[in-house]
Amino acid sequence: MLFRTDPSSPVPLGEQIASSVRAALAEGSLTPGERLPAARALADSLDVNVHTVLRGYQRLRDEGLIELRRGRGAVVVEMEGARFRAGLLARAAELAAEARRLGVSEEELLTLVRQSFALGPAPASGG
């Protein structure tokens, strides 16, 4: 699995690390039960503080995508739909970033999402 960070990006490094994991899960190159690199080793390879890596890992834990266990490290959860969830979380983060760039408030964005959700499934595209 390849982790990428861009220190010049306005996105915090911990979130960039979490995004790398979400993307790998969504594309299937990271699967349930796999271990992520040890925080210290990943921090060294990315030339970032170990706490930065831990923030990214904690974010993924809070999202239900990984488990953090003392002595065992970070492990991708064995959860049905983990790949779909990771892809959805990645797209939600992109949507939030785009909304911030456009000056859309959190409440406005949530209203737009609620309206879209209420419309039900998108019609199938003809082809």
Rank of each mutant, 00 (worst) to 15 (best):
L2A: 13
L2F: 12
F3G: 14
D6T: 01
P7K: 02
S8R: 08
V11R: 08
P12G: 03
G14M: 03
G14Q: 03
G14K: 02
E15K: 12
Q16M: 07
Q16I: 07
A18L: 08
S19Y: 02
S20L: 07
A26S: 01
G28P: 05
G28D: 02
G28E: 01
S29A: 04
L30H: 00
P32Q: 09
P32F: 07
G33E: 06
E34H: 07
E34G: 07
R35N: 14
A38W: 11
A41G: 13
A41L: 13
L42W: 04
A43G: 15
S45G: 08
S45Y: 11
S45H: 12
D47F: 08
T52S: 14
V53F: 08
V53E: 09
R55C: 09
G56L: 13
G56F: 11
Q58R: 13
R59E: 15
R59V: 09
R59Q: 15
L60A: 08
R61C: 07
R61H: 11
D62T: 06
D62L: 07
G64T: 00
G64R: 00
G64A: 01
G64V: 01
I66C: 06
I66P: 05
I66G: 06
E67K: 08
E67W: 13
R69T: 15
R70M: 15
R70F: 14
R70G: 14
R72L: 14
G73H: 10
G73R: 12
V76M: 05
V77L: 04
E78T: 07
E80G: 11
A82K: 00
R85D: 00
R85H: 01
G87Y: 00
G87K: 00
A90M: 07
A92Q: 13
A93L: 08
A93V: 06
E94A: 14
E94S: 14
L95N: 05
L95G: 03
A96P: 01
A97D: 09
A97C: 03
G103C: 11
E106R: 12
E106P: 09
E106M: 10
L109A: 06
T111Y: 09
L112R: 12
Q115L: 12
Q115V: 05
S116L: 15
L119W: 12
G120R: 06
P121L: 02
P121C: 03
A124T: 10
S125A: 11
S125L: 11
